[in-house]
């Protein structure tokens, strides 16, 4: 009878004991290894601080010029350059320059980290069915688990600050590049790979001369998605002490400052669009050889 009334639940005591045991175990682990883990991430912290300082302390016209130059190099489009410059000027004029630079630093470092971790993992997945079987569910968890949940152990382990924020961002932002590197390599034409085999190419030669170059447009799409994912984490990361455009948004939520929220929100949108259009234009340029223009 009672079987149908409510879902058969584990005994309340047992459940509490289980939770306590796991929490206790993790806490013990934190006490034991927290310092070691922190030391491990020290170089990352210095790098992040270095980039942040570089962007914040360099005079704004120089930063603006460098960004305009990079956008042009990647996209070869003056329209895009003009758009980027106008957007950044507006951001500066509304008093958000410094926060934007901090966010930019975070995005750049998070993207670099995601690429450094993601491309090798993507290659591994493309090469080994076993690696794929292990990694796919992990990636699913990374992308769908609410970020607040994995913030808990990260904060327990590393406390509040830049590095835990960065890790949270990377956990959310790395999966697209891993997936798309794997996909890009798998999509490489079998006939072309066979030709490489027929000429006696080794696995590394195939990777370097055939698979990666041909997967590059797909990998670029992955980097684009990674950047967008990182930007979408800015507010969450600010909850654990990452400075930048996220913090004013948090303040705006807490105090119902509508305008403050909107301004900072649009600043995030602005740099998102600059990143997106630039990296897409770059990806398209990489694919130039696919256009059939008969001689």
């Amino acid at each position: 009878m009672s079987f149908f009334d409510g879902f058969p639940v584990m005994e309340a005591d047992t459940l509490t004991a289980l939770k306590k045991a796991i929490d206790g175990g993790f806490r013990a682990f934190t006490r034991e290894f927290g310092a070691t883990v922190e030391d491990f991430f020290l170089p990352l912290r210095s790098f992040l601080i270095f980039v942040e300082r570089l962007l914040v302390t360099t005079p704004w016209p120089v930063v603006l010029l460098v960004i305009a130059g990079l956008v042009y190099l990647a996209s070869r489009s003056l329209r895009l350059v003009a758009g980027a410059v106008v957007a950044l000027m507006a951001i500066g004029y509304f008093g958000m320059w410094e926060d934007t630079m901090r966010t930019l630093a975070m995005i750049v470092v998070a993207t670099l980290m995601s690429v450094a971790i993601g491309i090798p993992l993507g290659i591994l997945m493309a090469w080994s069915a076993r690696a794929r079987a292990v990694l796919l569910p992990v990636l699913d968890v990374m992308q769908t688990m609410p970020s607040f949940v994995y913030l808990i152990p990260v904060v327990m382990l590393l406390g509040i600050g830049k590095v835990p924020g960065l890790i949270a961002v990377v956990i959310y932002a790395a999966p697209p590049i891993i997936r798309l590197t794997n996909l890009g390599i798998r999509l490489v034409d079998k006939d072309v790979l066979e030709a490489a085999d027929a000429f006696g190419a080794s696995a590394w030669q195939k990777l370097g001369k055939v698979q990666l170059p041909l997967a590059l447009p797909t990998i670029m799409a992955g980097i684009n998605q990674t950047i967008m994912a990182a930007l979408s984490m800015v507010v969450v990361a600010s909850m654990i002490g990452v400075q930048g455009l996220g913090q004013p948004v948090l303040k705006a939520i807490a105090n119902q400052y509508f305008t403050l929220g909107v301004f900072n929100g649009f600043a995030i949108v602005g740099i998102a669009i600059i990143f997106d259009r630039t990296s897409q234009a770059f990806g398209r340029r990489l694919q130039k050889h696919r256009e059939a223009e008969h001689a």
Binding site: D189, D191, V192, A195, L214
Partner: peptide, 11 residues
């Protein structure tokens, strides 16, 4: 080897 479907490197 020369391939029936050419199998050139498109990039």
């Amino acid at each position: 080897m020369v391939f029936q479907k050419f199998a050139l490197l498109p990039h």
